[in-house]
């Protein structure tokens, strides 16, 4: 592996806004003598396996899902819980705060990765095939809502009041079309990419989870840099991430009206009812036992 060469693997495609984010980042860090070697579409390492690849020195950079980090550091599961972050701005603030420092330090100590920042990719909303209007969690009772596999994701579905159904991402379109599932929960850009809107009648803007990954670089690369280089590297990441976040916000707004044009009912349900329902579920669960004392309150207060 040539020095300065940064192998980067991500699940998003080369056409994704985040791929452009990485191009911008790569331009900026050229000055520090780094060459980004990107692999998109999960072609090099499968979704969810990038973290271990970084830990084992097979990848210098990654866009890591917080769910993968919480798999190894249970304290991290707090940032994967429903209705924790209100929006992209809140997400950014929390990661810039001392709470963020604490989380980053855990990742650095236990996983050997340096987290550069959260990469926002859209809030997750509930999209349904049935026309039934959704206002409160009670309205989702019995609705077969597709969630990614695994207990943590299924619990997220329960915390919305739905009947979570695991299904492979590639099967969601047909699942919706045929009624094997009633709905899915993905950020709007995914709903567009995967054409789910073709087989949906409505989007309830539940914003139940602010979707983000973590742009990270291995400690091996990070620690070899001088403080000045680190600062420039971090600044390049901040700038690219900020650009990408704004692009995603723009795209989400565009897509909301695009789906309306396509005849879908796009509306905001009673978010207060959803938030209270979800946080209560999380606090009563085993997951919350691993959260650090006082962290939830601190995040809520920000």
């Amino acid at each position: 592996q040539a020095p300065g060469n940064l192998r980067f693997s991500a699940v998003f495609s080369e056409q994704d806004i985040r791929a452009e984010m990485m191009r911008q980042f790569s331009e900026s860090v050229k000055a520090q003598g780094f060459t980004l070697q990107p692999y998109y579409g999960g072609t090099l390492f499968k979704q969810g396996t990038e973290l271990v690849a970084m830990q084992r020195g097979n990848l210098e950079m990654g866009n890591i899902a917080p769910q993968d980090i919480s798999n190894q550091i249970p304290e991290w599961s707090i940032v994967t819980s429903a209705y924790l972050f209100r929006d992209a701005d809140h997400l950014k603030k929390v990661f810039a705060s001392d709470v963020g420092q604490q989380l980053k330090k855990m990742a650095s100590d236990k996983l050997g990765i340096h987290i550069l920042g959260p990469t926002y990719f859209g809030a997750r909303h509930v999209g349904l095939k049935p026309k039934k209007k959704i206002n409160t969690p009670e309205d989702l009772a019995g609705i077969k809502l597709r969630m990614p596999g695994g207990d943590a994701w299924q619990f997220l579905g329960q915390s919305l009041g739905a009947n979570p159904t695991p299904m492979a991402y590639a099967e969601v379109y047909t699942g919706l079309q045929t009624g094997a599932i009633d709905g899915q929960d993905n950020p709007l850009p995914n709903v567009q990419n995967m054409k789910f809107y073709e087989v949906m009648s409505q989007v309830a803007l539940t914003s139940h989870l602010v979707g983000f990954d973590l742009l990270a670089v291995s400690n091996k690369v990070w620690n070899a840099m001088t403080p000045e280089k680190q600062a420039a590297f971090q600044a390049a990441a901040d700038k690219a991430i900020e650009w990408s976040t704004q692009e995603h916000l723009k795209k989400e707004a565009e897509l909301a009206s695009f789906f309306k044009e396509k005849g879908l009912d796009v509306y905001t349900p009673d978010l207060k009812a959803f938030r209270e329902f979800a946080q209560k579920k999380y606090l009563a669960s085993d997951l919350a036992k691993s959260w650090q004392q006082g962290m939830l309150e601190k995040i809520n207060a920000m």
Binding site: F45, Q47, G48, T49, V52, G57, N58, A168, A170, E171
Partner: peptide, 21 residues
């Protein structure tokens, strides 16, 4: 190429683990 030969196992196992269809 001087790479981690464990990657052979990694790719085989994770590839099979994630290819549900």
């Amino acid at each position: 190429a001087g790479q981690d030969m464990g990657t052979a196992a990694e790719q085989l196992l994770n590839g099979m683990y994630s290819n549900y269809v």
